[in-house]
Structures are given as structure tokens and as C-alpha cells.
């Protein structure tokens, strides 16, 4: 496991380095100040943001899937991603200062999570994974409708609807990167330390409780801790979906793992995945830039269907 992680880390570094060198501008034909500007002010923050976004989405996915015992749970299928962009759009139409944006996204995202969980529990006492996901996706669709209304009312303050629906890393700055990276690190440490409780939760509530896990308290705390970093990241980039499902579930498809190694590997593979698809997206038909969210959708949905076909994404209870 440690060797696996170390090798993976090296691969990420090499991919990131390569990503710094390719782009729509040809570095070798530029002056020194020009290529320095392009690498350090445009490409480096973007590559680092891609790594942080991928890691945080994948980590939160792992936690959602374990805590809810639902392999299809992530910020998108629970309606939280749509809620986060809705919150972000609502924040820019008010006169509130800049930090309102991530704050609104966190509140809206957690509220959506709460509604989806409550509605699913009410509708279906057996609490099947499908019920939860259908409600989450439908609530997400409804919130996209509300988002569109906001864009129609305030086109000057908001961005285009496509930009919200398909997240993009093109505006990455060091400030936002620092904020999301700090939150991701903090949340990652807390989640890693809760590894034992999460493994026990995976055995079922009754057994976890009998082994000393205060299920009622731990479950919401873990969900909130895992939610905040991706919600903040999404509030700046726009929607990036499904990473939280396919990264951990692909890892589990090849090898069953306990929570802690799964968390670390998911973060690393998530980072690598987003770096790769974002680099392809911004170079393949340059100078036209394909948004990160689009590249993720195009690459993730086939993997998602593959995992469903292989019966990985079904309830294990």
C-alpha cells in the first residue's frame, strides 16, 4: 500500500510536470518573461487546483459511500453539487463580500444533503441506494431549474448557465487554491483519524454501535466534514460530477480495501484523474478549451456504466 501510494505520487508529479509544459501556447517560441508568466500564473495554479479538486471529490465520495453504505453516493448524486452552484450563483447576485460565495455553497449543499436523506428515509424504509440516488438527482435537476431562473433574472452578475453546469478550472488562482487545499487537508486528516469508526460503520449500524461507535453522532459529523471541501471547490469551479463515485469504486473493483488506504489511494487517483482530463480538455482542440466538467462527464459515464455492469455499484446489504 505504501509503495503503491509512493509510486502513484511520483506518477502524479510527472504528469503535472508534463501538463505544465503543454498548452495552447508554444513555450519555446516565447520570451523568458512570457513563458514564466504562462507557467507560473496560468498553468501551475490550474494543475494544482486540478489535483486538489480531484483529491477532495474522491475523498468525499469514499466517505459518503461508506457512511451511507451506498456505492453510488457522491456530491453529484446526492444533489449537493447542484445546490452548491445554486448557492454560489445566489451569493454573487447579493452585495455580500467575496467569502459569501463558498459559505452559501456549503449551506445550500448541506441543506440539499439533509433534504435528500430525509426524503429517502421517509419514502423507503428499506433505504435502498437507488431511492437515495434518484431523489438526489431529481432534487439536483430541480435546483438547476432554479439556477437558470437566477441567471435569467441577473445575467449581468451571474455567469452563463453552461459555465455553472460544467465546471471549469480556467480561472484558477492561488488564493482559491490555498483555501480549498487547506480545507481538503484538514478534512482529510480528520477523516483519516476516524478510519476505525468508518470501518465499523461499514459493518452495519447495530454492530458498529455494539463496538462502541456513537452512530447517531458520528454519521452526520463525518458527512459534514467530508462535504465542506468539495462544496467550496465546486462553488468556484462549477459542477464537476461523478469523480467521487468512479475513483473509489474503480479502486475497489480491482481490490477490496479498508477505509484508510482507500481514502489515501482515492485522493491520489482522483488528483491524477482530474489533472489528466483537464490537460486533455485544454489542449486537444486548442485554442478552444473544453471545460473540466465536460471532460469528466465524457470519461466518467462510460466507467460508471462499466461498474454497474460489473455489479460493483449495487447495494451490498
Amino acid at each position: 500500500m505504501n509503495r503503491h501510494a509512493a509510486v502513484l505520487f511520483l506518477v502524479i508529479l510527472m504528469t503535472a510536470a508534463l501538463s505544465l509544459l503543454i498548452g495552447s501556447a508554444d513555450l519555446f517560441e516565447l520570451t523568458r518573461t512570457q513563458w514564466q508568466n504562462i507557467i507560473f500564473n496560468i498553468r501551475l495554479p490550474r494543475v494544482l487546483s486540478a489535483a486538489v479538486l480531484g483529491a477532495t471529490l474522491a475523498m468525499s465520495g469514499v466517505v459518503f459511500q461508506v457512511v451511507l453504505r451506498n456505492p453510488m453516493a457522491d456530491s453529484f448524486t446526492l444533489g449537493m453539487a447542484n445546490a452548491a452552484v445554486l448557492g454560489s450563483a445566489a451569493a454573487v447576485t447579493t452585495t455580500l463580500p467575496l467569502f459569501a460565495r463558498p459559505l452559501f455553497s456549503i449551506i445550500a449543499g448541506l441543506l440539499a444533503l439533509f433534504i435528500v436523506l430525509a426524503a429517502a428515509r421517509r419514502l423507503d424504509t428499506a433505504y435502498r441506494p437507488e431511492t437515495l440516488i434518484i431523489i438526489g438527482v431529481l432534487l439536483g435537476a430541480m435546483m438547476s431549474g432554479v439556477l437558470y431562473i437566477i441567471v435569467l433574472i441577473a445575467p449581468a452578475q451571474t455567469e452563463s448557465i453552461a459555465r455553472y453546469m460544467f465546471g471549469s478550472l480556467s480561472g484558477s488562482s492561488y488564493e482559491v487554491l490555498l483555501l480549498t487545499a487547506a480545507l481538503a487537508l484538514l478534512s482529510g486528516i480528520i477523516l483519516h483519524r476516524s478510519g476505525r469508526a468508518l470501518d465499523l460503520l461499514n459493518l452495519g449500524d447495530a454492530r458498529a454501535y455494539s463496538l462502541g461507535v456513537d452512530v447517531k453522532k458520528v454519521r452526520p459529523l463525518l458527512l459534514i466534514t467530508a462535504s465542506i471541501p468539495p462544496l467550496v471547490a465546486i462553488s468556484f469551479t462549477g459542477m464537476v460530477a461523478l469523480v467521487g463515485i468512479i475513483v473509489p469504486q474503480m479502486i475497489l473493483y480491482f481490490r477490496p480495501l479498508m477505509f484508510r488506504p482507500l481514502l489515501i489511494l482515492s485522493a491520489l487517483y482522483g488528483a491524477l484523474y482530474i489533472i489528466i482530463v483537464d490537460t486533455v480538455g485544454r489542449t486537444i482542440i486548442a485554442p478552444i478549451q473544453i471545460p473540466t466538467g465536460v471532460m469528466v462527464m465524457i470519461s466518467a459515464v462510460p466507467l460508471f456504466i462499466f461498474l454497474m455492469y460489473k455489479r460493483v455499484l449495487v447495494s451490498r446489504r
Binding site: A25, Q34, I38, I42, I288
Partner: peptide
């Protein structure tokens, strides 16, 4: 009326 990237402008 194409969309261009920041680095195209920098270039």
C-alpha cells in the same frame, strides 16, 4: 468570434 484561453492572450 472564438473563445480563447488566457495563455493564448499572454502568448
Amino acid at each position: 468570434y472564438p473563445a480563447v484561453s488566457a495563455e493564448d492572450v499572454a502568448e
